[in-house]
């Protein structure tokens, strides 16, 4: 740099120009660089695997699909899909019976592998990362294509070879075995019957997000209070939930015998105020994996007495007195601990 033609103003402006350019290039999600990358990514392999998965799921529900169904369901360009289908037929992953597309043995095994990878990823996202529940499906949808068989097995082992993904769907083993889910749809439960939620369908997206927004989770105990053509009302963990029957149809429940005690008046630890004491009833099923175990190990177990030791002027974290020690928790954790106020 020659000091003669230097002026702080030009230096500043040049700098701003560079920053603007970098911003346009790398803006998260919308930057040009990412857009170009994304285009490259939607490769043949991904489309093939998506088709296999689609076929696998519909054959499980004993529906058969034709070419039009496939092109309509997948978002990729039609010509790419047709190309992929032809390639799949060549490799004997599918049989074309007229308009109908059927999986061969090999194709169905391949499809199962993708399903396995997908569900393991969801389990991983739920247990080991902090991604929002609504994003799990989308992320797993991308990641499932990146795992080799060996990677999938490794992931499975790391998670303790789980049998179910966080939505309650069974995860196939590497030999293709799968636990089966039997239950009643929430929309078909009798009034006053008790049940435990075992499955929440993550499609269609809008309905799933609505269920999540209501804070309904796998493993929660429920009691049906009211049912008619317009709505299903049930109580769970101290709160009342009202759902439209179609939404309720996305939730599967196993019925529980009546003698299972369902506590009324249950509150959440986050609702405890200073000076009150309470007894812990349990930890809601929304709290999973590592963090659930840590709370248990810290003494937040059924029957323990709890009170507020130190409030926080900023709202959170608050310190709770539990088994003789004060332990600070953020509100999102405290709200998952169920209590019965004294």
């Amino acid at each position: 740099m020659n000091e003669l033609n230097y002026s702080p103003l030009t230096a500043l402006l040049t700098f701003l120009g560079i920053v603007l350019l970098l911003f346009l290039l790398f803006r998260p999600g919308k930057g040009w660089f990412w857009l170009i990358q994304k285009n490259k990514e939607s490769s043949r392999k991904v489309i093939i695997e998506d088709i296999l998965k689609l076929l696998y799921h519909s054959e499980n529900e004993e529906k058969s699909l034709n070419l039009v169904d496939i092109t309509r369901t997948l978002k990729d360009p039609d010509d790419l899909i047709i190309d992929s289908i032809n390639e799949m037929a060549e490799h004997e992953l599918i049989n074309l019976e007229g308009e109908h597309v059927k999986l061969t043995q090999a194709g169905s095994e391949y499809g199962l592998r993708i399903v396995r990878a997908h569900r393991l990823w969801e389990k991983f996202l739920a247990e080991k990362t902090g991604f929002a529940e609504a994003d799990w499906h989308k992320i797993a949808e991308q990641k499932e294509h990146e795992l080799s068989d060996a990677d999938t097995d490794k992931l499975s082992a790391r998670l303790g070879n789980p049998q179910f993904d966080p939505h309650g769907d069974p995860i196939p083993t590497n030999t293709g075995k799968m636990a089966n889910v039997t239950g009643t749809l929430l929309s078909e439960m009798e009034v006053n019957s008790f049940g435990r939620i075992i499955h929440i369908k993550d499609k269609p997206d809008i309905v799933y997000r609505q269920i999540l927004a209501e804070n309904i989770h796998i493993g929660s105990h429920i009691r049906i209070v009211e049912k008619n053509a317009n709505r299903v009302v049930f109580h769970s963990e101290g709160e009342a939930f009202v759902l439209a029957p179609i939404v309720a149809g996305n939730i599967t429940v196993t019925e529980l015998k009546k003698d299972v005690k369902v506590e009324e008046n249950i509150a959440r630890l986050s609702m405890l105020t200073e000076g009150e004491t309470a007894e812990i009833i349990g930890i809601s099923k929304e709290m999973r994996g590592e963090s659930r175990r840590r709370l248990l190990d810290l003494g937040f177990v059924k029957g323990a007495k709890v009170s507020i030791e130190l409030p926080n002027p900023l709202g959170e974290p608050k310190a709770f007195l539990i088994k003789g020690t004060s332990i600070a928790l953020r509100n999102n954790q405290a709200s998952k601990i169920l209590i019965l106020k004294d």
Partner: peptide, 8 residues
């Protein structure tokens, strides 16, 4: 450690 049973 709080526990030997966890995997943290």
């Amino acid at each position: 450690t709080y526990s030997l049973l966890s995997t943290s």
